[in-house]
C-alpha cells in the first residue's frame, strides 16, 4: 500500500460535508448550494466572499476533507500538497473578466476578476488558510476522473517527495454561454491521503498502484475519485 485515505470532503447537488459529519439536502432546482464562509468554516471570512464559484467549491471540499482528517486546526505551516483536477475550472470567471475588458477598455479591466482567472488560485487560498506548504497545482483532463492527479500524488509519495496530500476534483460545470460540449457533473470532492497516517483509525482504505498502472483502492481498481468516494460512502452508511 502506498497511502491511506484518512479524510473526504465534498460539495454536490445532493449533499455536502465530510465523511464524519455531513448533511444531505434536496435541492429544488438541482443546483449546487450557494456556499458561504459560515457554511464552510463556521465563521465569516471576507476572503471567501471574494472568490469565484469554482474557487469556493474547491476550497469548501478541501476544507471539509481536512476537517474529516482532523487536520483543519494548525499552529505551524505543514508540508501538505494539494492537487485539483478540473475541466472548466475558472472559465466562467474568464468570460466575466473579458466582458470587463470589452466594456470598460483594457486599462479599466477588473484586477480582482483577473486574479481569479487561474485554476490554481484557490489552492493558494487553501494554503494560506490551512498553512499548507506542499506543492499545489491544477490538473486538466478531458474527462473529470481525478485519477491523473491522484497518480501524480502517489508518484510523489513513492519517492518521498510529499507524504501528505489533498487530491480532488472541482468543477462548476459548463458556463451557459460557452457552447463547447463537455460532459461534467458540477461539484467538488477531495480526499486527504497520507503515506504514514498519524492515526490509523481514521483510514477509510488504502491506495496502491497495480503493475498495470491502475490505481487500486482497497485492492480493487478505482475508475475515478467519484468511484472511491462511492465505495467509502457505502461503508459510512453500513
Amino acid at each position: 500500500m502506498i497511502a491511506s485515505v484518512t479524510g473526504i470532503g465534498w460539495v454536490k447537488r445532493e449533499s455536502m460535508g465530510s465523511g464524519r459529519g455531513h448533511q444531505k439536502f434536496q435541492s429544488k432546482d438541482a443546483a449546487l448550494p450557494k456556499l458561504t464562509s459560515r457554511m464552510v468554516f463556521g465563521e465569516v471570512s471576507p476572503h471567501f466572499g471574494r472568490l469565484d464559484e469554482y474557487s469556493k467549491l474547491g476550497l469548501a471540499a478541501a476544507a471539509f476533507a481536512l476537517k474529516d482528517a482532523m487536520q483543519d486546526k494548525w499552529k505551524n505551516k505543514r508540508p501538505i500538497g494539494i492537487i485539483v483536477s478540473t475541466v472548466h475550472g475558472c472559465l466562467a470567471t474568464d468570460i466575466d473578466y473579458f466582458e470587463t475588458v470589452m466594456t470598460f477598455g483594457g486599462n479599466l479591466a477588473s484586477p480582482n476578476l483577473f486574479a481569479c482567472t487561474l485554476p490554481n488560485i484557490f489552492l493558494g487560498e487553501a494554503a494560506i488558510r490551512f498553512g499548507l506548504t506542499g506543492p499545489g497545482f491544477a490538473v486538466n483532463e478531458p474527462k473529470l476522473t481525478g485519477l491523473r492527479g491522484l497518480r501524480m500524488a502517489l508518484s510523489s509519495m513513492l519517492i518521498d517527495d510529499c507524504l501528505t496530500m489533498l487530491v480532488g476534483t472541482a468543477d462548476p460545470g459548463r458556463p451557459e454561454s460557452f457552447q463547447h460540449d463537455t460532459n461534467v457533473t458540477p461539484g467538488a470532492l477531495f480526499l486527504f491521503i497520507e503515506k504514514s497516517p498519524a492515526d490509523d483509525s481514521l483510514s477509510y482504505g488504502g491506495l496502491d498502484m497495480a503493475p498495470s498502472g491502475d490505481i487500486l483502492f482497497d485492492g480493487a481498481p478505482a475508475h475515478s475519485l467519484e468511484d472511491i468516494f462511492k465505495r467509502i460512502s457505502k461503508g459510512l452508511t453500513k
Binding site: 473579458f98 475588458v101 483594457g106 486599462n107 477588473s110 483577473f114 486574479a115 482567472t117
Partner: peptide, 12 residues
C-alpha cells in the same frame, strides 16, 4: 493575448 495583457496591466 489581450486577455492576459489587460489583466497584468490591470494588476499594474
Amino acid at each position: 493575448t489581450e486577455f492576459t495583457f489587460s489583466g497584468f496591466c490591470a494588476l499594474k
